[in-house]
Amino acid sequence: MQINVNNKPINTEATNLSTLASELSLPEKGVAVAINNRMVPRSQWEQTPLSEGTSVIIIKAACGG
């Protein structure tokens, strides 16, 4: 499935935000994530489904580049 992370299309097997976080090796702390412009606290990542074309914004260190 294809989703957008920081406006860049990526392919992922993840069906929820928590699995995406492990796929992208997001650090334990200091990460801000928004799905379709809404910020999602870490405690809700597991219950937050991803679908084709979902827009994810991730603010974290060592992002991009």
């Binding site: 992370v5 920081n6 406006n7 914004i57 991730i58 603010i59 992002c63 991009g64």
Partner: peptide, 10 residues
Amino acid sequence: NVREAGFDIP
């Protein structure tokens, strides 16, 4: 411009 350049920076 950001999209065209492909910068994945919020």
